[in-house]
Simulated scan of single mutants.
Amino acid sequence: MKILILCTGNSCRSQMAHGFLQSFDDSIIVCSAGTQATGKLNQQAVAAMKEIGIDISHHTSDPVEKYLDEEWDYVITVCGGANEACPAFLGKVKHRLHIGFDDPSYATGSDAFVRSEFRRVRDEIKERFYQFYIENIKNR
């Protein structure tokens, strides 16, 4: 089973989703990429995942072009905010899904508020991707 999680910057939401899917089942191949990959991870996302015992600090922020020639069972886009358009993936894909989330990297305010936004989105990603995993992967 091969899953590609796609976003624009590949620094935050797609990285968290990647970490969760891999934590649910290490036998599946999970990659993440961005149409405008930043080349780095959002450190707030890394910290939010570390709080719950998932280390994504070793992930890389990769351009989608790296994966265009591969075949995928699922390509899942995670962009959700009004400020951002979800990218299209034109590669070989069996199933395309969109599971959108707010981008916590746009949160402004106190440090405590920004951290709470990363935690909120992290928890939403965990819930929705676990549901996806149970419905589409675990029992297949």
Score class of each variant (00 low, 15 high):
Ser105Thr: 14
Asn42Phe: 08
Cys31Gly: 00
Glu135Leu: 09
Glu51Leu: 07
Leu41Trp: 02
Ser11Tyr: 01
Asn136His: 11
Tyr67Glu: 09
Glu135Cys: 00
Thr35Phe: 08
Ala47Phe: 04
Asp55Thr: 04
Ala107Arg: 03
Ser23Trp: 01
Lys50Gln: 09
Phe24Leu: 07
Thr8Trp: 01
Asp62Glu: 14
Trp72Arg: 02
Arg128Phe: 04
Met16Thr: 03
Tyr67Ala: 05
Lys50Ser: 12
Ile137Phe: 09
Lys92Ile: 10
Thr60Gly: 07
Ala88Asp: 13
Val78Phe: 09
Gln22Asp: 04
Ile3His: 02
Gly91Trp: 07
Lys40Gln: 11
Arg115Gln: 10
Glu124Gln: 15
Gly34Glu: 11
Phe20Tyr: 14
Gln131Met: 02
Arg140Cys: 12
Ser61Asn: 08
Asp25Glu: 00
Val46Gln: 02
Ile137Asp: 03
Met16Asp: 12
Asn42Glu: 12
Gly91Ala: 03
Gly91Ser: 05
Gln44Asp: 15
Ser105Phe: 05
Trp72Cys: 04
Gln36Met: 05
Ala107His: 13
Trp72His: 02
Gly109Ser: 12
Val64Ile: 11
Gly19Arg: 06
Trp72Ile: 06
Thr108Gln: 15
Asp25Val: 07
Ile137Lys: 02
Ala37Lys: 11
Lys126Leu: 11
Gln22His: 10
Ser27Asn: 14
Gly91Lys: 00
Leu90Asp: 11
Arg140Leu: 08
Gly91Tyr: 05
Cys79Leu: 06
Glu71Tyr: 13
Gln22Asn: 09
Ala17Phe: 00
Asp55Trp: 06
Lys94Met: 06
Thr108Leu: 15
Phe20Trp: 09
Leu68Thr: 14
Pro63Phe: 10
Cys86Thr: 11
Ala33Cys: 10
Ala17Glu: 00
Val78Thr: 10
Asp103Gln: 06
Thr35Asn: 08
Val121His: 09
Leu6Trp: 01
Cys12His: 02
Glu71Val: 11
Ser14His: 02
Ile137Met: 01
Ile99Gln: 04
Thr35Met: 04
Pro87Leu: 11
Thr60Ala: 15
Met16His: 11
Gln15Asn: 01
Asp123Met: 00
Tyr133Ile: 01
Tyr67Lys: 03
Gln36Tyr: 08
Val121Tyr: 13
Ala37Cys: 05
Asp111Trp: 14
Gly53Thr: 01
Val93Ile: 12
Asp73Cys: 04
Ile54Pro: 00
Gly39Thr: 12
Glu65Asp: 08
Gly19Val: 08
Lys92Asp: 14
Pro104Ile: 08
Leu41Met: 00
Glu65Arg: 13
Ile134Cys: 05
Ile56Met: 03
Asp123Gln: 12
Val75Gly: 06
Arg13Leu: 03
Ser32Ile: 11
Tyr133Trp: 07
Pro87Trp: 03
Tyr133Gly: 00
Ile52Ser: 02
Lys40Glu: 04
Tyr133Glu: 07
Asn10Thr: 06
Asn10Arg: 15
Phe129Pro: 01
Asn136Glu: 11
Lys94Cys: 04
Glu135Tyr: 01
Glu51His: 04
Val30Ile: 12
Phe89Cys: 07
Ala37Thr: 08
Glu84Cys: 15
Ser27Gln: 10
Asp103His: 13
Ile3Val: 12
Val75His: 03
